[in-house]
């Protein structure tokens, strides 16, 4: 196997990881600040992808589509936060799981109602089509490279927002002691709506960016949702840094596992056995990773010790 191919797969894993980070960041923020498990996060990803596909098809501009995906997902997030999620903060995890599972049904069937069952397609904008030659002579699709860059910018922005701004201070204070910051005169309800909408917008952005690589269809959010959960559990729920590390780990493990495991087994057994065992193990690999992390660090890599 060539080094160039391996390098390309590492970049693919990185791109996948960055995309997972966009999903996981909102999920982990919402859990860290509000203590809520939101299964419907994948639906916001789907909303973003559909908004982008619909607007891009209507206007012909991918960039307007991306803007629409951010706006639509944030709006959908704010609406469900005010209408439903707000009532769940005081409830136990069981109620949260069931209510947000119900939201998935509503969103998925609602989207099927509006857009039908056929997948929509999004084209890569002309300015980002083609490939770039990286140092070492690797040709890599410009669009995937752009996703990596966008992801890094968003991650940096998010760290700056949480670490350096006034609203970030309020978010961190909200994680630590919600009664205290309410007593200090912060409108906690508005802060929660903001955090939820922010997470939703990031999920919507991920949906829009991935929409050009995969098809845009109902149910697209669910596999990603489960992966995002794996990411935040590995990283430690509530930790943005953990989400970033977890996302990159999961992205690389999954992509490289699919690439390397079949050829690794091929050195030990027949070609067809190696392919089936290798691919079976590869698709399980991230869950094995998660189980291992939880067995040795029951609260994830960067989770709070208590």
């Amino acid at each position: 196997m060539s080094t160039i191919l391996l390098f390309e797969q590492i970049l693919n894993g990185l791109q996948f990881g960055i995309m997972l980070f966009l999903m996981a960041a909102g999920l982990t923020l919402v859990f860290g600040v509000m203590g809520l498990i939101n299964l419907a996060h994948g639906s916001l990803y789907m909303v973003g992808a559909f908004a982008c596909a619909a607007v891009a098809a209507a206007t012909g501009s991918f960039w307007l589509g991306v803007a629409a995906s951010l706006a639509a997902a944030a709006a959908a997030g704010a609406v469900i936060e005010v209408a439903v999620i707000r009532r769940l903060y005081g409830r136990d995890h069981l109620d949260q799981v069931l209510a947000t599972f119900a939201l998935i049904l509503v969103f998925s069937e609602g989207t099927r109602w509006i857009f039908g069952s056929f997948p929509l397609y999004l084209n890569v904008p002309a300015s980002l089509s083609g490939a770039v030659i990286l140092p070492g002579g690797v040709a890599y699709p410009t669009y995937r490279l752009a996703i990596i860059v966008v992801g890094i910018i968003v991650a940096a922005g998010l760290f700056a927002l949480i670490g350096k701004t006034r609203i970030g201070v309020q978010i961190r204070a909200g994680e630590a002691d919600r009664e205290m910051i309410a007593a200090l005169g912060i409108d906690i309800a508005r802060l929660y709506t903001f955090v939820f909408a922010l997470g939703a917008a990031l999920a919507g952005l991920a949906g829009a960016l991935v929409g050009t690589i995969q098809s845009v269809q109902v149910g697209m959010g669910e596999p990603v949702l489960i992966l995002a959960f794996v990411v935040i559990v590995i990283g430690g729920i509530g930790s943005i840094k953990g989400a970033l590390v977890g996302a990159i780990l999961v992205g690389l493990t999954d992509t490289l596992g699919r690439f390397l495991l079949p050829s690794l087994f091929a050195t030990m057994m027949s070609e067809s056995d190696a392919t089936s065992i290798g691919s079976a193990l590869a698709s399980m690999s991230i869950y094995i990773l998660m189980a291992l992390v939880l067995i040795f660090r029951p609260r994830g890599l960067f989770g709070a010790t208590n």
Binding site: V230, A280, L294, P298, G300
Partner: peptide, 26 residues
């Protein structure tokens, strides 16, 4: 070994592990 929300997620992970195994085991 875990608790709370981690328990929910790790049980989910084990089920998913078997799910993907069943899909890819011919």
């Amino acid at each position: 070994r875990t608790g709370g929300v981690y328990f929910i997620m790790i049980t989910l992970a084990f089920a998913q592990m078997i799910y993907y195994f069943a899909i890819s085991w011919p």
